[in-house]
Nucleic acid binder design. Structure first.
Lengths: 214, 214
DNA sequence: AAGCTCTGGAACGGATCGTTCCGCTCTGCT
DNA sequence: AGCAGAGCGGAACGATCCGTTCCAGAGCTT
């Protein structure tokens, strides 16, 4: 957010930094396998403008994914802080889920995973996110606002399921995602129905997601 | 299912018919964009064996998709028949959902849609499926076993969300899908929570799915 | 033994896409 | 005014991938 209006060429370049990242986020969220030319087109710039900033497609994807992880961590930290401050647990949880869904961080992290070689930063942020999730779920169990058989790994699956709702423009998609999030929350929050079948997912089942294909 | 053991070459050919279809289903369910060579490899045959039976990849996909639609229609018909016969509505609904999830027809219909030019058969089966869905939902509302704001198009979205659970081998994936199906059913069935937000999806929103890309 | 059906898999041609490169524009400085 | 160079657009390149064709051979059938 450069408030100082740099003149001419240099200002354009600074603006492009942001325009390109926004375009890349939008394009790759819509289609993680999209070509780089699509990003350039969406941003209204040439391909050179991209390669001037990122040495390869992989690094651009890595950057987007890391940004997504950081956003997730930020929202999760706020939720944990709210709980520590004595906020209503059920409502805090619902708000947390809605904020994550709105930020669509899942599309930037899980769906981009495997398209680039994760760095140490990714690993650390992912671990941090895991800790926050664990802490959050623990608090929710203590407060007895969620069904007892809810496990941490369920959170990721729920986000993944919600991300599978992909219709319409941004606004309509947001509406529908909130609809199905509420549906899932109705099943997640107490009073719950009968016990869920089968062994719950464990975190390790998600790990292979990060293996780079080639 | 040829029980008569044809001799030698011709038997092998007859067996290949089935082997190839099974392999194709498995491969394309796992990855709708998989190359045809992957199907041949999975089936343990050469590429010629495929092209002898289907003039193009598109026709193979069309066949798989139609099969999926017919399976869906069959299961939906049984559910409707059970309701007409006076079976317990909530349980019939749950069984219906579980059977569809197990058959994974969603992966064969929605996820393959757009990869081939739909035929009249596809259209008719899709319409039939829509009618059965409408009838089913109507009955459920009459019996007051589902939340009042449930609409027909929600069914498709729920299946789509469940299909987003893609971990592990067949068995593990099945377990997890049942877990999240139960979670969704807990939200779907009465006693429901508060009203769902935003306008519900309408059937037309799904139509573009069938447009062939090129 | 001839003729056919069916097969495996190499080869072809087209498409896609990441990356490089060249020539141009415009700016900031002298 | 003129120049050096940063920044840029987009064509061109090379690699890869994939659907489809084609051909040589293997084995039934008669």
């Amino acid at each position: 957010m450069t408030t100082v209006p740099l003149s001419g060429r240099r200002a354009q370049a600074a603006r492009n930094d942001e325009v390109i990242l926004d375009a890349a986020r939008e394009v790759f969220v819509a289609d993680p396998a999209a070509p780089i030319a699509a990003v350039a087109h969406k941003a209204g710039v040439g391909i050179s403008a991209l390669y001037r900033r990122y040495p390869s497609k992989e690094e651009l994807l890595a950057k987007l994914c890391l940004d997504g992880l950081l956003v997730y961590v930020g929202i999760a930290e706020e939720a944990n802080a709210a709980l520590d401050a004595g906020a209503d647990p059920a409502e805090t949880f619902a708000t947390f889920m809605r904020r994550i869904v709105d930020a669509d961080t899942h599309s930037l992290t899980q769906k981009l995973a495997g398209t680039f070689q994760p760095t140490e930063d990714h690993r650390l942020s992912a671990i941090r996110a895991g800790e926050l999730n664990a802490h959050l779920v623990e608090r929710l169990h203590e407060a007895k606002v969620v069904r007892p058989d809810l496990v941490v790994a369920d959170l990721g699956q729920v986000f993944e399921m919600i991300a599978a709702v992909r219709f319409g423009d941004d606004e309509r998609r947001g509406q529908l995602r909130h609809r199905y999030l509420d549906l899932l929350l109705a099943g997640l929050l107490l009073p719950g129905a009968t016990a869920l079948p089968g062994p719950p997912p464990y975190v390790g089942e998600f790990a292979s997601r990060w293996d780079k294909a080639t």
